[in-house]
């Protein structure tokens, strides 16, 4: 009788088990969403935003790395080619335009998803300040908005959960006596670290969808399936160099990098073509072959 009762109850047990499992999965998922740090902390002035991710103290102990970073595009993510503020033209004309700058809101800055990830902690008041600074061509203020050390070593260092406040993430755990708590992030040597910003394609989550870099998508869907084995860091952060080339403003260096990445072979054949008797035509046949050593399409970003 007991066995029969157990058999009758078994489907319910199964259903119960699934219900419990589903609840746990749902709880984990839901809890994960709320724990993504997106974000309860808000700053309402530009100076507060700059201070929130200020990494200048890193230079005291990591001078060489800091100097490398200072020369990188990460140190000037809002400055385009030839030291112009790249957002100016978008704020002046087109779907992201705003006039005057004081009317700017976070909606004007989908580009900041990657060009200034810490912007998610800012209010519309900060957006207005930034829009105003950009439209006034206030480069001194705009230059203070950077992909600082804390963006990569905290904000973007954890994707499975939430980065902890006041923790620096690196390649290994370090004891606290170094001055700050350093925890290992498995992402640091992983291409996903860079892929968070360096592009999968259209960003459809915004009211005005934007499409910038598609580079990480190319890495995932062209380089890896073709047998590629290198990470972004292998090529762009050799020996941990935080200069992270290419540097579009160093024209010679960038040209040389492209030359190394895209070897080109040229072959020529010169002869007299004679399609029919007595019809001689001098001819050169030129063959070119460009091979790519890059881990992504070129050009991309």
């Amino acid at each position: 009788m007991g066995d029969i009762a157990m058999m009758l109850l078994r489907p319910w047990n199964l259903a119960l088990k699934w219900a419990v499992m589903f609840s746990i999965i749902f709880f984990l998922f839901f809890d994960g969403v709320t724990a993504r740090c997106d974000s309860t902390e808000q700053v309402s002035t530009l100076n507060e935003l700059i201070a929130l991710f200020d990494s200048s103290s890193c230079k005291e102990c990591h001078e060489k790395i800091y100097e490398q970073w200072e020369k990188s595009h990460h140190a000037r993510p809002l400055m385009g080619l030839d030291d112009e503020i790249f957002m100016t033209k978008y704020l002046k004309n087109g779907v992201l335009a705003v006039k005057p700058g004081e009317k700017g809101t976070k909606r004007n800055f989908p580009c900041f998803k990657c060009h200034l990830p810490q912007f998610k902690y800012a209010t519309d008041k900060v957006a207005a300040e930034i829009a105003d600074a950009i439209l006034r061509n206030d480069k001194a203020s705009v230059r203070q908005l950077t992909i600082s050390c804390l963006v990569c070593h905290n904000e973007k260092a954890v994707v499975h959960g939430c980065p902890e406040k006041n923790v620096i993430y690196g390649n290994r755990d370090l004891p606290e006596d170094t001055g700050h708590l350093v925890k290992k992030s498995p992402l640091m040597k992983n291409s996903l670290m860079c892929g968070q910003c360096h592009g999968l394609g259209p960003n459809l989550e915004f009211e005005t969808p934007v499409q910038c870099a598609t580079l990480y998508g190319s890495y995932l869907h062209a380089y890896i399936p073709s047998g590629g084995t290198q990470t972004c860091q292998d090529c762009h952060m050799k020996d941990g160099n935080h200069y992270m080339p290419p540097n579009f403003n160093n024209r010679e260096e960038f040209s040389e990098r492209l030359k190394q990445s895209l070897p080109m072979e040229v072959q020529t054949l010169s002869y007299t073509f004679e399609p029919k008797e007595g019809d001689s035509r001098p001819m050169v046949v030129l063959k070119t072959k460009i091979t790519s050593k890059a881990g992504h399409r070129i050009p991309d970003g």
């Binding site: 394609g201 499409q211 073709s226 460009i290 790519s292």
Partner: peptide, 28 residues
């Protein structure tokens, strides 16, 4: 421009592991 683009329709860029070869015949 990133504020206008949305979805690729053609890609003529140089792809990893995919050499681009061209032959040009130049009559003199």
């Amino acid at each position: 421009g990133p504020d206008k683009k949305l979805g690729l329709i053609r890609d003529t860029s140089i792809q990893p592991f995919a050499p681009k070869e061209e032959t040009m015949e130049i009559p003199l």
